[in-house]
Simulated assay, not measured.
Amino acid sequence: MHDFCFTIPYGLLLVGGGVFGYIKKGSTTSLAGGVASGLLLIIAGYLSLNAFGKRKNSYLALLLETVCAAVLTWVMGQRYLETSKIMPAGLVAGISALMTLFYLYKLANGGNHLPTKAE
């Protein structure tokens, strides 16, 4: 699987979660955090998708995705430990931890697998 296949939906999930948190609880922190991190991931996924279309890897996008997911894992993991609430802290921490592992795997294996050129 390519990183952008998961990154763009992951970013959309974060944006949606931030907007939902704002609508439900009036939390501007949730709105700002969810939208900012989600948009950053969507942009990184888009950069990776464009590079893949040019038959290249975007290590900048992959590094940005990894750092963003790792920071979300840390921040939301700390919030989960403080509140013991599965929603949203535990869920976001868990998904972000899985995404961090996926991105580290992609980095260790040289990025996206580029198909051989068809003649």
Rank of each mutant, 00 (worst) to 15 (best):
A93G: 05
G21F: 10
L62G: 11
S37H: 13
L62E: 14
T66C: 14
G33F: 02
L40T: 15
T116Y: 05
G16R: 09
N109F: 07
R55T: 13
Q78R: 09
G16N: 07
Y10G: 09
T100F: 04
I23Q: 11
M87Q: 00
Y59D: 13
T116E: 13
I86Y: 00
D3N: 12
A51M: 06
E119R: 06
P9Q: 04
C5M: 11
L49C: 06
S48D: 15
L47F: 14
L60F: 15
A61C: 14
L72Y: 05
T66R: 12
G53V: 01
L64C: 14
G16D: 11
I95Y: 03
K54G: 04
I95L: 14
I23S: 05
G26M: 10
S30Y: 11
P115F: 09
F52G: 02
L49S: 07
V15D: 04
S84P: 00
K24Y: 03
G34F: 04
N109K: 01
I43P: 13
S48E: 14
K54P: 00
A118E: 14
A69D: 10
T7A: 15
G16Q: 07
L39N: 10
K54N: 12
Y105S: 02
E65S: 15
V92Q: 07
Y80Q: 07
A89R: 00
T116S: 10
V19P: 08
V92R: 04
I95Q: 03
G18L: 07
T83E: 00
L64D: 11
I95D: 04
I95G: 03
S58G: 06
L47D: 06
T116W: 02
A89Y: 00
T29A: 10
A118S: 13
A108T: 03
Y10L: 11
G45Y: 10
I43T: 15
A36Q: 09
Y22I: 02
